[in-house]
Amino acid sequence: MKSIPISLTCLLTLAGCQAVPDRLPQAEPAPAAACYFPTSAEGALKTSVDVLIEEGFTLSSTDTTLGLISASRERALQGYYDPYDNAYGYGRGMRVFGGLGFGRGGSGVGIGLGGIGFGGGVGQQPVEVERVSLLVSDAHIRISRDIRRFDHVGDLRESYSASNADFCQRFQTSFEQRVPATRTPL
């Protein structure tokens, strides 16, 4: 009988521990029903762009053949508290060369500095970036929105889907106010 090497046995054991996800990734929470609404307006793509610009968004990209619009806006977060900022007990966001370390060996004391940059984030503001994507067709508009929050050093701290009914209803109301009423001949 042939012997099986230990590394192969360990590999087979670990392969048996692999878990397959029970579902594909999805937006959590799911987009609100108000984020998908019918439209029969001519020039819906241009009207959607106008509404986004009026709301303070900057266009990131558009594809008129697909009817896709991507836009974003950002705002400074005054007094944003980062729950992870002081998680390990070293300073409220103070970074010197990316990190600071102290050590004590058998008969001596050492200090080490590592990383790149000095005092990253000093004087910078935490920001919130809101991204919106619209899919505009002849029959309907679909809205997708997400929000990301970055701390004062530019590290991502929060990210979530924000396709809620409030935002989508406000967009729909602004959109419908800009679209001229269609009249049927008598």
Rank of each mutant, 00 (worst) to 15 (best):
M1S: 13
M1P: 08
S3T: 11
S3R: 15
S3C: 06
I4D: 13
I6P: 07
T13P: 00
L14Q: 03
L14H: 04
L14C: 10
C17G: 05
C17K: 02
Q18G: 10
A19P: 04
V20N: 06
P21E: 03
R23P: 03
R23D: 12
L24A: 14
P25A: 09
A27G: 01
E28S: 12
E28V: 14
A30W: 05
P31E: 11
P31K: 15
P31M: 15
A32S: 15
A33Q: 13
A34H: 10
Y36A: 09
Y36I: 10
F37P: 01
F37Q: 00
P38V: 12
T39G: 07
A41R: 10
E42T: 09
G43C: 01
A44L: 07
T47C: 05
S48I: 00
D50W: 01
I53L: 10
E54F: 02
E55H: 07
T58P: 00
S61V: 00
S61F: 01
D63A: 08
T64M: 02
T64G: 02
L66D: 11
G67C: 02
S70F: 00
R73S: 03
A76I: 09
A76T: 08
L77F: 06
Q78A: 15
Y80W: 14
Y81F: 13
Y84H: 04
D85H: 06
Y90S: 08
R92Y: 13
G93V: 06
R95Q: 10
V96A: 04
L100S: 07
G103S: 07
G110L: 13
G112N: 12
G112I: 05
L113S: 01
I116C: 02
I116Y: 05
F118M: 01
G120Q: 13
G120D: 11
G121F: 12
G121N: 12
Q125N: 07
Q125G: 02
Q125H: 05
E128A: 05
V129P: 00
R131D: 04
V132S: 01
L134R: 06
D138E: 12
S144L: 06
R149E: 11
R149M: 11
F150V: 02
D151K: 09
D151S: 04
H152T: 05
V153D: 10
V153L: 11
D155W: 15
L156G: 08
E158R: 07
S159G: 14
A162W: 11
S163V: 03
D166E: 14
Q172N: 10
Q172M: 14
T173D: 15
T173S: 13
S174M: 14
F175C: 07
E176P: 02
P180Q: 09
P180C: 09
P180R: 09
A181M: 03
T182W: 04
P185F: 12
P185C: 12
